[in-house]
Design a protein around this nucleic acid. Structure first.
Lengths: 338, 338
DNA sequence: CTGAAAGCGCTTACAG
DNA sequence: CTGAAAGCGCTTACAG
């Protein structure tokens, strides 16, 4: 049933019905009530494509994932939060996956030109990120999950990666550790750079050098954590403590430590950053894992909020948040071995 | 730029431009080439909402996730595959999350009435699933990831859960195990019922009883795997082998076995079903985990294929697949202890 | 092979 | 507070 039929059926004009259904103020409240009830009864719902064509709004936001690799456990939690929030306002989420950077760029161009979305969410930005410049050119509103450098202010939500790793490193130093390794993510993303900066700065503040051989990079997988940790342990003077970038890396690192016949927490201390996965809790590992913690699901919800405000023309500079990160000491960290 | 402007710019009618761009045969090939090149040059792309309104096709398919809980690692892999496939045909994916069954139903009604999607994907079906009946009523095409009972045939893709667990159980019996436990998913889904049926049938075929205390249910998380396994080990006569429904459950089970001072593979054999997560490989666990295996990402891609065919009016009964499941013997299974 | 025009189902300025 | 009508930007039967 379309608007014409529905309006005829209840003896009102299309105009009035349309206004009643979209919550315009200038409709008598009993008329509105009558319209809404009839719509419910007869199952009338405006055709979304027609609505979009008429208003020029897409009613959807886009998010692009590069490669299978990046659509992992972090993505699902983030998407869960985002979707929960946007659902409430009837905004759809359009998911695209691409393989290369060029394809990602093409995807934004396509989304913009065909007016498929009202805004996009950019994630895992690099310090200097070409996507930001591109989206500006395309005049496609965006929110960044993470941070990046740019002349003009833009909307973003990030966690305090620097503070998190500073706290973790400091804690290990306080426990007497002098040889501390870092399992980081890639080498270009802002979050990875912030974490490494915090690590180096805190070491330096205590007169400790950052050994290049103590810094590893790679995807946040069990496998990479395992491989990097094995590498550390094979060094002539291996680290007595490690900071892992994610729960997945930490799983691998713990395994490598055990295989080497060492005890996590006693021989090698371990801290991981925990994005809070409902199916994998640091409390449940043995020993329980000391973590820096920030729920990525909550970030997704908040970004949903922010994107709605962005679409209501709120200024990007008022849509900038940096969230503090919790630090939870559990059993995987202890005094440096004598 | 819209069609009118663009057509005027290159001196052709809107009709011809539209036909050239959507690949109609009745356009001279040099005209088409000229149009496509100009579109590329000038950045013209049809407004998607207008296109949808005119054709009556939404150009998108929907998928609804119930609760945060169900949007986990399985979902991400599946979505990665699905999205990769649909991307190629320019079909969007609309993701919705809901909290309750009623909300899920409401979501389908909304999607159908507002013509927001051309089809939906239903996942984790129960043996008798009300969603199927609902979608039939709504006349909204759908594909089921999994299987269900219904009078009329419908499109689905499932893996051979029965065969997988039959093979796993048989293997453990062949190794001399007589007390075998099962960590299953929920109690209503078809996959869980199929797995339990296979488990019971195989035990029965060897004159073994299925102890109720050896069957556990719950979400596929580390935590649940841990808790259930601890329960099994606390029994007066604990199992010597366990089949876990997912890699996550297996992680928890391994932990519980270790904490009890037992060795995985020697004291307690463990088999898990592996949906193939890029960040967590059974080869990398210690000992390496024996698994039944079927990549859920590939299933997502295939369902993408199938949904495209469904939209081209292919008959549902020709869109039904059951995929065999691989069995990979690794170090976590061994002869039953004497 | 190409074009003029109706129609898809809404919203919204304008008029009353 | 309500309505008649133009317009959003496409597609596609119909005519040539």
């Amino acid at each position: 049933m379309n608007l014409k039929e529905f309006a005829a059926r209840i003896g009102l004009s299309q105009t009035t019905v349309s206004r009643a259904m979209s919550g315009y103020p200038e409709v008598k409240s009993e008329t509105r009530a009558r319209v809404l009830e009839a719509a419910e009864q007869l199952g009338y719902r405006p055709n979304i494509s027609a609505q979009r064509l008429a208003t020029g709004r897409a009613g959807a936001i886009g998010i692009v994932f590069q490669g299978g690799g990046r659509f992992g456990p972090h993505s699902s939690e983030f998407m869960g939060g985002l979707s929960t929030r946007l659902q409430k306002d009837g905004i759809d989420i359009l998911v695209s996956t691409v393989e290369t950077e060029d394809e990602e760029e093409a995807a934004y161009r396509r989304l913009a030109a065909s007016k498929r979305v009202d805004a996009v969410i950019v994630h895992t930005p690099a310090c200097i990120d070409s996507r930001i410049a591109l989206l500006r050119t395309l005049d496609l509103p965006f929110i960044v999950h993470g941070r990046s450098e740019a002349q003009k202010p833009f909307a973003f939500l990030d966690i305090d990666n620097f503070g998190a790793i500073e706290t973790a490193t400091q804690h290990l130093i306080d426990l007497g550790h002098r040889r501390i390794a870092l399992i980081n993510g890639d080498t270009v993303s802002t979050y990875a750079r912030d974490r490494e900066r915090a690590y180096r700065k805190t070491l330096a503040a205590h007169g400790l050098a950052a050994e290049p051989s103590f810094i590893g990079h790679g995807e946040f997988t069990d496998e990479t954590g395992f491989r990097l940790m094995q590498g550390f342990l094979a060094l002539p003077l291996p680290p007595t403590a490690v900071i892992a970038g994610s729960m997945m890396s930490a799983l691998g690192a713990m395994r490598a430590i055990r295989i080497a016949g060492l005890a996590v927490g006693a021989d090698v201390s371990l801290i991981a950053h925990d994005d809070v996965f409902p199916y994998l809790s640091p409390d449940n590992l043995v020993p329980a894992l000391t973590t820096t913690q920030s729920p990525i699901r909550a970030a997704g919800e908040r970004i949903g909020d922010m994107v709605l405000r962005l679409l209501q023309e709120e200024a990007p500079e008022s849509l900038q948040e940096v969230w503090p990160v919790d630090f939870l000491i559990r059993g995987s960290t202890g005094p440096a071995p004598a």
